[in-house]
Design a protein around this nucleic acid. Structure first.
Lengths: 239, 239
DNA sequence: CCTGTCTGTCATGGGTTGTTCATGGTTGGA
DNA sequence: TCCAACCATGAACAACCCATGACAGACAGG
């Protein structure tokens, strides 16, 4: 986890969402605030989220459903916000995998305290681009082995990747055919924000292409999206 | 932690303590119930406590004081019970190192849910080298025998490890494919903090690689994660 | 007390990554 | 079609991080 943990705040009520996002920002967190579960799913995929704060009551998909989804697909901690005082709902939330809940109306200060408690617990294991244990991704004749952190070509020859190259490759392999901006890639691979005129990602892309593209000048795998970022254009199978 | 986690319940009011202890027992926990902070200190020393449930308001030494003591001397999680509804007290508790608090009157079912949340967290990321219980770990053609503190290769040849090397190897074997920072490794293997420019772990890694890597210059087992630490890239079976 | 092993510290060298910058490609409008 | 503005590329460089040999203090066994 980077210096400033990245929180995803999901609440449909603007009057809660915006001031809370501001408060959390002032307290040392990076905050992405969205107003629906659907938007939250997009952000979970695109960014490296360290913790989710989730309103239970929302139009469309509700918080409990999203919470279940998060728990099934990742280890990201979840704090539920609930206006309901009914005990059963809160307990259902905990049993569903939420790490904590906070009753509305709550004090922002208490929420921050609870967030810190969770990070204190998590601090030992958490790492950013963790691939599911031992997963292998197959695309375009390559095998990306997350356990060995290497690429293997169709003839079984192993190609060593540096740490940054591996992180980048994994970011693409888990999000094939998705355009990822430089900001997103920085966030995913290193959990940091871009400083002005940051060409770090460009450079890594260049180095990666030299390793995996048949003709690095005419990339067929990692394509440039002008003004947008990069995308891995290949079908990826997870083994 | 054994199958049935051992809880220490500290509350001076018998009308709460005894029924609650019973309820917790019926829900899969071993429970030691005491009525004072002093008694709690004795039990903490004498028994292997996995979690403490602590009333804040008690005659004599109060819960907050005991909580601070626990946090200073161990990693045992603490849940505070508090009758006070004042926000500040609860937050002070959290900031003092408690893992959670529950407001009186609370439902036992909710308390159990919260206990389980904490154990779930601890189980995934917990520190500490697991006690040498005579287990053997098999990975990449090696056997790490915790009883003999040696590595045995596929031909049965035994390779002696020094203490530090063994601790390091065990730390990896119990956390395969996890990136462990130098800080974590120092903490796990020696329980100490890194001082600035601490290269002790680097050196141990280097020595360990020379012993177990086919080609120490191109490590395939213990890999470097740039800016992150090291990881054991292998499938580990516990025998 | 001596000796050998173990382990932390230091210094040096090498690898990896971020930044800068000149160059060339892409885009949209004239 | 041409041009200006913008953007991407990749080489060169600098900063940073890591690997490892040498050394010395700590420690245990004789």
């Amino acid at each position: 986890m980077s210096d400033r943990p990245h929180l995803l705040l999901v609440d449909d009520e603007r009057s809660i969402r915006e001031p809370l996002a501001q408060y959390l920002s002032r307290n040392g967190f990076r905050v992405t605030a969205v107003d629906s579960a659907a938007e939250a799913r997009v952000r979970l995929n695109a960014n490296a989220i360290d913790l989710v704060i989730l309103d239970i009551m929302m139009p469309g998909e509700d918080g409990l459903s999203l919470c279940r989804h998060i728990r099934e697909t990742s280890e990201i901690p979840v704090i539920l916000l609930t206006a309901k005082s009914e005990e059963t709902d809160r307990i259902v939330g905990l049993e569903m995998g939420a790490d904590d809940y906070v009753l509305k109306p709550f004090s922002p200060r208490e929420l921050v305290a609870r967030i810190k408690v969770i990070f204190r617990r998590v601090a030992s294991g958490g790492q950013r681009v963790t691939a599911p244990d031992g997963a292998t991704y197959a695309f375009a004749g390559w095998l990306l082995k997350s356990q060995e952190r290497t690429l293997v070509d169709s003839e079984g020859v192993s190609l060593p990747l540096s740490t940054a190259e591996y992180n980048l490759m994994l970011a693409f392999a888990t999000r094939p055919n998705q355009v990822l901006s430089r900001d997103q890639l920085l966030d995913i691979t290193q959990g940091r924000e871009a400083n002005a005129f940051d060409r770090a990602i460009d450079n890594q892309i260049s180095r990666l292409r030299k390793k995996i593209e048949p003709d690095p000048k005419n990339p067929t795998l990692i394509k440039t999206v002008w003004g947008g970022g990069y995308t891995l254009s290949a079908e990826v199978r997870k083994l």
